[in-house]
Design a binder for these strands. Structure first.
Lengths: 200, 200
DNA sequence: CGCTACTTTCATAAACTTGTGAAGTTAAGG
DNA sequence: CCTTAACTTCACAAGTTTATGAAAGTAGCG
């Protein structure tokens, strides 16, 4: 634990999240409350079937101001070993929810939330929906489309086809909406909260 | 593999799936192939986070000709104890994917696939999406909407709101489409495969 | 070209999940 | 009301997942 802190003095320390930077603005994070949110949201994702640590890492990244953290930061905030972080980020990388970067001049990797984590998840070809669809299609053949069971399964296949098509259209609409809004914002107010967003 | 075939001998017994009903038509089920489909689809649902036995029960019902099976039938086909069936159907009932019936004059319950299992799952208020949305909303407040992290989370909330709205609309469209098709079928060909469908 | 700061892999331990038999409960039908 | 079939609950065993420390692997940087 304490042996990790050697390197701290260098710069913005473990948490790049406003707190450590001693900035004078009022937006100081209540790290404890933030952590509660991280854990709660992670727990809900876990309930829905995502690996526990992967969920926690994802939630932590989602709640970090620049949408990225290093392994050490994650390890410290979530109180888990580097090994656990390693496993989690491998998973999250595989499913395209985060990316790995290297800060130039450092040996540390940074893990960054993809700009469109949900978009990526929902659209990637090797999708849950796609796989189900394929299996169901074979099942419909096996059962025979002229049987009630086969007909039911065939209809389920159609439903999933429909669902996926519509999902793509829906996501496009979202993207448009976001772009429109961004443009409007850029012209209107001068606010510069313009960090990469988590949706899409 | 081969040792499982004992059950075949008896008669239609456990499986009400067209095979036993003594009908002369060629649509005799290859029970082994059907079982492979059941297990494969169940495994995919399990991978996606659903309880293993619940998935197997669901898949079995989906593949049964009248979309319903008794506890004993499930127990035999899936080779699990009545206790396991009990637990699985309790879960499936809770998430509104199946319903419980009682054959009049019998002491056995029947578990029936809801006509619209996906519809129910996607639209019920106590939804994964709704819960995530609420948690995220609180998170946005905690983080402060004027911080990059808070803004990102707030946008995620909007995305989930958008997603849910669109999902409802999408499901309505599907229902319309199905109804239209049914009507057309009824008028056009004389086919009578018209069993309840699994989609919606 | 080797030192050192990271990251990953691996065997093991802990925690959790799941399925079971047995006991308990409910209600159909005499 | 008693008998009995069917369903549910429960404590426990088996199996699976998950996190860990230790060891091995990589790659910046002198």
């Amino acid at each position: 634990m304490s042996s990790e802190d050697q390197r701290e003095g260098a710069n913005g320390s473990a948490n790049k999240n406003g707190t450590g930077s001693g900035s004078a603005d009022g937006a100081r994070r209540d790290e404890e409350a933030v952590s509660r949110f991280v854990e709660r949201f992670a727990a809900e994702m876990t309930e829905a079937g995502m690996q526990r640590t992967a969920s926690r890492v994802f939630a932590a990244l989602l709640s970090s101001d620049d949408a990225s953290m290093t392994s050490a930061e994650l390890s410290e905030q979530l109180k888990i070993s580097p090994a656990a972080v390693s496993g989690a980020v491998r998973y999250l990388t595989q499913v395209s929810m985060i990316g790995r970067e290297r800060d130039p001049g450092s040996r540390r990797d940074r893990y960054r939330l993809h700009t469109q984590p949900w978009y990526a998840t929902l659209t990637q070809r090797e999708n849950v929906l796609s796989r189900w669809e394929n299996t169901l299609r074979e099942g419909a053949e096996t059962l025979g489309r002229d049987t009630p069971a086969g007909a039911r399964v065939a209809e389920t296949v159609e439903f999933f086809e429909f669902l996926q098509q519509e999902l793509f259209a829906l996501l496009d609409r979202w993207k448009d909406r976001q772009e429109t809004r961004r443009t409007a914002e850029a012209q209107g107010t001068g606010t510069s909260t313009g960090t990469g967003t988590g949706t899409g």
